[in-house]
Structure formats: structure tokens, C-alpha cells
């Protein structure tokens, strides 16, 4: 098993490097001889390595297992986001093809993993990556996040907490020595250069606009009326369907009905029912304030 793990890790490393246009010398990769012997890689002639077709396919299958398992952890378990990568990394080498397909089926053959990366299909198809880094955008630029890198975990943790996730729209508010300030997920945050480098963005689709009046439900005040705009993609699986079923759907009008004795949880009047939500939920629900006259 250890052998398989070494081989697969080296293969992935090679795939990633070649994919981002780097060259890898056989001498730099620990098990390059074994890779060549297994006909997964070949010497390109100048001492650098290239992948064979079989090697490319194999690498994609390992990536598929990894991304599927992360998706599984995100949707079906309560493990926090900063553990997914480590766990998936441990498991990816132990799964056989059948187990991988079982997971895929159980999850409804997902297309993207929780970080926004496409999952290679069973026959090895993978759309090319899009977009570019957040730090390369000018002030005032608005777009959507397509990928949030999960390493290093400490930085990723901060981003996830702030609501960064694939498919979330953002706008650059300011750039300066202290970092990049962005409006994202209903609030404004300032990212360090290291954090900003983890976020990949793309332009808005033609039919999309950036709406700066969107705030988080937790920022709603007593007496105000609001309309739900969206639920963050970070709310997944059971937690998401629960919210939807309870009537927290785009277009639902809500007001605060009650606050718990210590300020939490907060009960909202939603579609005729009083429903209490916790803070970690209300900071993931995007709303837009309504003028009192609209509130009918």
C-alpha cells in the first residue's frame, strides 16, 4: 500500500507540474524510475519527464477519487472544511475503481468539488481551468469566484469563514499595502496578499450584476424587513435542504420575531412561521433590506 501511495503521489505531482507548464527533471522526482518502469511516464529525451497516456489517465483517476471524497465529506458529514483535504489525501490511495464509482453515484455524480474544481469524469475528461487570480484585478472590478485553494489550511480557514466559495460574486473595493479589500458574501473584508492568492476569479456572466446592497441575515436589525437573496454555497447537504424546506428561499420575506435571552439564537418570521436560526446559519444567508412600504 505504501508503494502505491508513493507512486500515485508522484504521479499527481508530475501531472500538476506539467499542467501548470513547469518541467520536471527525472532526478527531482523521488520514484521517477518506477513511474517509467510502469509506463506511466517516459523520458522526454532531455532528462525531463512526460506523462504517457496511461499515466495521464491514472493521474486523473487519482484526482477524481480525491475530489469525490472531498465532496463526500462536504455534503454528507460534519467534518469542517479544513480537514477535507487531509482526509481525502489519506483515502484516495485506498479506494478501488468500484468504490470511487459508488461514492460518485451516492452523491449524484457531482460535477465540481467543494473548492470549485471540476471532478474528472470516469472516462478521464476534465474541462480546462479558467479565470485568474484575485490580486491581478483592478479596483471596482466585479466577478465570481471559481476556485478557492485549500492549502495552506490556516489561510483557507479564514477565507471559508468569510464566505469565499465557488460561485460567490465579489467586487474589489480597494487595494493597498495592507491588502485587497473586497465586498463578498454580504460584507466587506480585507485579505492579505497570501490569502488573495488562493482565490481564482472569472468575470460575471452577461446576465449578472454585482449587487452591493446584499447583506447577511445576521446583520438584519429589529423592525427591519428583508428579502432572501441566496444561501451561500458553503451551506451544503442536509443543512442546505433543511433551510430550503423551512422556506428560506430566494424571495422569502422575513423579519426578526424574537431574540434568545443571550442574543442567540434569533427567531425569524418566515412565510407565516417563527423559525429560530443560529448565527453560523444567519451569516450564510444573503438578504436585501426592504423599505417598509414594500413589506407586504
Amino acid at each position: 500500500m505504501a508503494e502505491r501511495e508513493q507512486l500515485e503521489d508522484a504521479l499527481k505531482l508530475l501531472y500538476d507540474a506539467l499542467d501548470s507548464g513547469e518541467t520536471v527533471r527525472s532526478a527531482d522526482l523521488p520514484v521517477s524510475a518506477e513511474l517509467v518502469a510502469a509506463e506511466l511516464a517516459r523520458d522526454a529525451g532531455d532528462g525531463t519527464l512526460a506523462l504517457t497516456d496511461a499515466g495521464r489517465e491514472y493521474a486523473l483517476q487519482v484526482i477524481r477519487a480525491h475530489r469525490l471524497y472531498e465532496t463526500y465529506l462536504a455534503h454528507r458529514t460534519g467534518h469542517p472544511a479544513d480537514e477535507w483535504h487531509r482526509q481525502a489525501h489519506a483515502v484516495e490511495h485506498t479506494l478501488d475503481a468500484e468504490a470511487v464509482e459508488d461514492i460518485a453515484r451516492a452523491l449524484g455524480d457531482p460535477l465540481y468539488d467543494p473548492h470549485g474544481d471540476p471532478i474528472p469524469t470516469a472516462d478521464g475528461q476534465l474541462p480546462p481551468p479558467r479565470g485568474c487570480g484575485l490580486s491581478e484585478r483592478p479596483v471596482g472590478w466585479a466577478g465570481r469566484i471559481i476556485h478557492v485553494e485549500d492549502e495552506p489550511p490556516e489561510l483557507y480557514q479564514v477565507l471559508a469563514q468569510a464566505g469565499f466559495a465557488p460561485d460567490v460574486r465579489l467586487r474589489i473595493e480597494a487595494t493597498g499595502t495592507d491588502g485587497t479589500t473586497v465586498r463578498v458574501a454580504g460584507h466587506t473584508v480585507t485579505l492579505s496578499a497570501g490569502q488573495a492568492a488562493l482565490v481564482q476569479c472569472d468575470g460575471l456572466r452577461p446576465d449578472e450584476v454585482f449587487d452591493a446592497s446584499v447583506i447577511r441575515l445576521r446583520d438584519l436589525r429589529e423592525g427591519e424587513t428583508a428579502e432572501v437573496v441566496s444561501i451561500s454555497p458553503l451551506v451544503r447537504g442536509l443543512a442546505r435542504s433543511r433551510l430550503l424546506d423551512l422556506g428560506v428561499v430566494p424571495g422569502s420575506v422575513l423579519t426578526i420575531a424574537l431574540r434568545g435571552p443571550g442574543g442567540q439564537p434569533v427567531a425569524y418570521l418566515i412565510r407565516g412561521a417563527t423559525i429560530a436560526l443560529r448565527e453560523e446559519q444567519t451569516e450564510r444567508i444573503m438578504i436585501r433590506r426592504r423599505a417598509a412600504s414594500e413589506a407586504a
Binding site: 465529506l73 454528507r76 458529514t77 460534519g78 467534518h79 447537504g237 442536509l238 443543512a239 433543511r242 433551510l243 423551512l246 420575531a257 424574537l258 439564537p265 427567531a267 412561521a273 417563527t274 423559525i275 429560530a276 436560526l277 443560529r278 446559519q281
Partner: peptide, 11 residues
């Protein structure tokens, strides 16, 4: 730790 978790409380 790994069990799925969600919260809802209707009054």
C-alpha cells in the same frame, strides 16, 4: 465529529 449536523427550531 463527522456526523452531519444542522439546526432548525420552529416555535
Amino acid at each position: 465529529r463527522g456526523e452531519a449536523s444542522t439546526f432548525s427550531l420552529e416555535l
